[in-house]
């Protein structure tokens, strides 16, 4: 919309708002009443002064009867002029009502459009916060003599369609712990869709096997970059490969330097999280990262 049209619309809204305020609100009515009273008082004052000067010129004094007569004459004169101007006043009132109604309607259209935008924003925030992204698919192949055999597919949460890597392993114990580094970003980053919380699985241990004796998943390369994020140039969509890799380095630096990340107001928390459940042969589990924070696990196919 052009500037001039916008100015006209804003002017109508402002004028409409002013009229609604003046003729519907207690304060507005008070202002109108006070203005009217001041005008009537001024008119009466002028008339009384004029009458007093006339009496003095005639060598007389304007007494109480004279004051009352002047007052009555002024008020009746004003009433008469009001009656004569009634059609004009009705026309002005009708125009004012039109402007007020138009202004109010235009304001409500603006408010409704702003409310619709706010609903859209809040819906997006809620959707982003309620998101749950897959980190790993676990199949329990067997549980025999207290030893569990597993097949694990790992997923990059930002690319959920296909596994990023696969491991088969065996471990003593039945309550299996899937250990991951969890990076939770600030709520504002998640709500706005700029970031998603990240989980990097790096170790498996069990109720009977201490963490330091657990099985490493080979999750990171020699530079500390999580393998799940390794991509060939052809597999990187939407970002130039060098940008993608520099963003990865940024992520690794964040992981390494929690204090810097917190001060930047980006990372809310960084810690290890070993999600676990007692398992039996045939179990199929999904490990997920919640966008409010933290890991959860659920049955992949509840039965």
């Amino acid at each position: 919309m052009g500037t001039n049209e916008q100015l006209v619309l804003d002017g109508v809204k402002a004028l409409g708002g002013l009229l609604v305020f003046l003729f519907t609100s207690p304060l507005g009515l008070g202002i109108c009443g006070a203005t009217g009273l001041v005008m009537v008082s001024l008119r009466i004052g002028v008339a009384l002064r004029s009458a007093a000067l006339t009496a003095r010129a005639a060598g007389e004094r304007l007494g109480i009867p004279g004051i009352l007569l002047t007052l009555a004459d002024t008020l009746l004169g004003m009433a008469g002029r009001l009656l004569v101007s009634l059609p004009t006043l009705i026309l002005v009132a009708a125009m004012a009502m039109t402007v007020a109604a138009l202004g109010t309607t235009l304001s409500r259209i603006d408010e409704s459009a702003a409310a619709a935008r706010r609903i859209q924003e809040l819906s997006t925030v809620l959707k982003n916060l309620q998101r749950s992204l897959k980190v790993a698919d676990v199949r329990v192949l067997s549980v025999d003599q207290g030893r569990t055999s597993l097949s694990i597919d790992f997923y990059d949460p930002s690319v959920p369609s296909a596994p990023a890597s696969h491991r088969d392993l065996e471990i003593q114990g039945r309550d299996i712990y899937f250990d991951a580094i969890v990076l939770n970003f600030d709520y504002s980053q998640i709500a706005g869709g700029q970031k998603i919380n990240i989980a990097i699985p790096y170790r498996v241990f069990s109720d009977q096997v201490a963490q330091r004796d657990g099985l490493p998943l080979g999750a990171m390369d020699s530079q500390g970059i999580p393998l799940v994020f390794h991509r060939g140039d052809d597999d990187i969509y939407g970002l130039a490969p060098e940008v993608y890799r520099s963003r990865l380095k940024e992520l690794v630096d964040l992981i390494r330097n929690d204090e810097v990340a917190r001060k930047a107001g980006i990372v809310r928390s960084l810690y290890g999280s070993a999600i676990h459940r007692p398992v039996k042969a045939g179990d199929r589990l999904e490990i997920r990262i919640e966008q409010t924070g933290g890991l959860t696990v659920r049955d992949a196919f509840p039965f």
Binding site: I181, G272, R277
Partner: peptide, 15 residues
């Protein structure tokens, strides 16, 4: 049924 555990911990290497 669907109860699960979550052992949160620090990590010597990072934090």
């Amino acid at each position: 049924g669907t109860v699960f555990g979550n052992a949160v911990h620090d990590i010597n290497r990072f934090w």
